[in-house]
Nucleic acid binder design. Structure first.
Lengths: 249, 249
DNA sequence: CAACGACATTGATCATGGTCAAGTATAACA
DNA sequence: TGTTATACTTGACCATGATCAATGTCGTTG
């Protein structure tokens, strides 16, 4: 007993998928208990990044996908003109890099929004493994398909919805993702800056600010800086009209 | 020789992947000549749909992915409120249904824009086969990843670009896709209505119309109904500013 | 060939949200 | 603990594209 604990302490970076609290969200979700070792064989666990550090950079050779273990990550595309487009925010258990699997280089840049640890899955080994574990392959298809759907939902949000609707939708999406991770769904701290929110939702920072204060005046939320409290979730859902991205990123 | 031709004529629906002119764009692209038979075993070829007919419907049980063989297809999501969001246009050789692989039901509706024939790949068999053919698996990852990238590009277009830029981008995308299929890149017929273009690009129909005539007045294109001629591709590229979706859908 | 319906174009007006500018709060650092 | 840089908020004004309304064109069918 004491030995088992000691082993764990001696090699904290090798903490196994077996005892990771995210195993019900992350890749291990799809793998049988006895095959989990094979997944552990290919993963490099526990890399740590500080706020603002890049996990990978666009146009750099694509090697690995990454699962967020703790903290949070923002992905974005930089155009030739130097404009940034935020393509997603990622929370613990979510997989980054799926959009790069068609190219030799990363299709976007991933940046830690706070102190963040990630697990790295080299793609060559991952592909080899999914070829052997049908369940894992299925899960990969599942995740990638989900990513497509999310992106379609985002496109829809951008093309059809008002500023208020977009922001309400984002708040609700974050809320349900926090809930899944057993954190408060009504009381959380936004990992990203207003700027990132604006960019992600295709708005100006000023507009985001204005909508936040408007929601606040209506008693729907309480916000001070990045600290947010959802006071009236029903009202938020009303704002989003017909919007179906409930439990997904 | 004559026999070979006769066989082909007797069973036109069973025309093989081997002799399909799209094999360099479609799934066979990834498969060794000797493994092609296994792909043929699972595919149902040559289903024909008339203009306006649905290939599959949102919320219907998800069974298969489809490759366009000839014609063209539009996919769209219908929200609870009954609003439509066009998520993509598909041309011969392109694969439809990848966004549904994470759900029990189709995530969108696919509609033939003209008389269209498609090849059907039942997913259960497809997954089984990709488990055995690493090249095919890799290709599936590739296609899905591409789809994510396309969708991100669309999101970017919607959130950052003006009406003119969006339409120029769409025209260029169509152009390069026609070129790949060995059709004229400057002289083609739009398979979709102005309405679909507007919806896809997050614009009003009227705006699409206006931009078309503006481009025409500037001598950049010539358009009569769905018949389009690109007179000055350079100018179109200028309009799209920093835009990188060259050869992709 | 007439007549209908769907699709497309054009014009006039208006609203949402962008831009510019200034000011305030917060966080990072010496 | 002051000092600066960064993030956020608020206000005034303006532009792009949506909306409403009317007219025009095409293709289909009796």
């Amino acid at each position: 007993m004491a030995q088992a604990i000691r082993v764990q302490q001696v090699s904290p970076l090798k903490a196994s998928c077996h005892q990771c609290s995210l195993s019900n969200l992350c890749l291990p979700l799809a793998v049988e208990e006895n095959d989990l070792d094979r997944l552990e064989d290919i993963v490099q666990q526990g890399k740590i990044y500080n706020r603002g550090e890049h996990i990978f950079d666009q146009s750099t050779p694509f090697r690995s996908c990454f699962a967020v273990k703790s903290g949070s990550v923002k992905t974005s595309i930089i155009t030739e003109g130097g404009e940034e487009q935020v393509t997603g925010f990622f929370m613990p258990g979510e997989l980054i890099g799926l959009d790069s699997m068609s190219s030799e280089t990363y299709a976007c840049t991933a940046k830690a929004l706070e102190r963040t640890s990630v697990c790295e899955f080299p793609v060559d080994k991952l592909e080899e493994l999914t070829g052997k574990l049908p369940e894992l392959q299925h899960h990969m298809y599942h995740l990638m398909s989900q990513e497509i759907q999310n992106s379609h939902q985002l496109a829809m949000l951008l093309s059809k919805n008002t500023a208020e609707e977009r922001i309400a939708a984002l708040l609700l999406s974050l809320s349900s993702r926090f809930r899944r991770r057993r954190m408060s769904a009504t009381n959380f701290s936004l990992p990203m800056a207003r700027n990132d929110i604006a960019n992600f939702l295709g708005l100006a920072v000023e507009t985001v600010s204005r909508v936040f204060t408007r929601f606040q005046n209506q008693g729907i939320i309480k916000a001070r800086g990045r600290e947010v409290e959802l006071l009236d979730v029903e009202a938020l859902q009303m704002v989003t009209r017909d919007f179906a991205r409930q439990g997904s990123q």
